[in-house]
Simulated scan of single mutants.
Amino acid sequence: MLGDTLVRRFDHVAIAVGDLAEAVPLYHDLLGGKLIAGGDDENLGLRTIQLEYPQKVKIELIQPLTPDSYLAAYLKKHGPGFHHMTCFVPDVEGAVRALEAHGFETVGTNTSSSYWRETYVRPSSAFGTLLQLVSTELRWEDPIVPEGATVEDIIAGRLVWNDARPAWREDAK
């Protein structure tokens, strides 16, 4: 054992897909995932749908918005499937120090946002799994999708991520 645990809470598993509309019949309709968040993140070039299942288990479906996004390149190389696992930690900088002190390589550390500070543990260092470790003061345990929003609204691009919260796109109202 390395001492105190780094993870405060497991949040979700992200699955990369080429088209959310193809994945929704399985993950939402048949498996019964309840919509809790989603929208376009134009900075990352992603469209996401986050679904919740019993016991607060969450799956995030992620689709590239453009053919030149990092996720489009990922899908071209690896195909659809598991992309990453997100866990919340009390302190990203402390997690990076602890991980690297024990020989685990972190990448993509970004602490510039006041509401979402993150780092990743490389798959080559995490037994084939991309781990996203995040510290945030925002609550992510409960649904944050705007009232009345549906998976169809997200697929159609009517919602966007705005300051870490999904919101109606201005021209979609």
Rank of each mutant, 00 (worst) to 15 (best):
H102D: 11
V96M: 07
S124H: 11
G128Q: 05
T48L: 10
E141L: 09
R117A: 12
Y74W: 15
G94F: 12
G94R: 08
Y115T: 15
A37N: 06
G148F: 05
A167D: 14
E52D: 10
R139I: 12
E42N: 13
G38I: 06
I49A: 04
P80H: 10
T86S: 12
Q50S: 14
S113I: 05
A172M: 05
R158M: 06
P80F: 06
V92M: 09
K58R: 14
D142M: 08
K77A: 14
A37G: 07
Y53I: 01
G39C: 02
S114T: 13
G32R: 03
L26C: 02
G79V: 00
V96I: 01
H78L: 11
G3S: 09
V57I: 03
L131Y: 03
N110G: 10
D153F: 09
Q132I: 02
Y53E: 03
L26A: 05
K56H: 15
H78N: 10
R122H: 14
A126H: 05
A14T: 07
D40E: 15
L99R: 00
E147A: 08
W168I: 06
D68M: 04
G38C: 09
V89H: 02
A72D: 06
P123D: 01
A98W: 08
I15D: 08
G39Q: 06
K34Q: 15
G103C: 10
V151Q: 01
T111K: 11
P64Q: 01
S125D: 08
Y27R: 05
D29M: 02
T5K: 15
V96L: 07
I49E: 07
V24Q: 06
H78W: 12
G128C: 06
W140S: 14
S69E: 12
D68E: 12
A156Y: 14
E22T: 07
H12Y: 13
Y74P: 00
L61G: 00
A72V: 02
Q50Y: 08
W161T: 08
S135P: 12
H78R: 08
I154T: 09
D40K: 11
A37T: 03
P90V: 00
D153R: 07
L65Q: 10
V134E: 06
A23V: 02
G81W: 00
A126S: 12
V134Y: 08
G38M: 06
D142T: 06
E60C: 03
I36D: 11
F127L: 15
R9F: 07
N162A: 15
S69C: 13
E152Y: 02
I144D: 10
I154W: 08
L31A: 08
F82M: 13
E22C: 06
H102I: 06
A21W: 07
F127A: 09
E60Q: 05
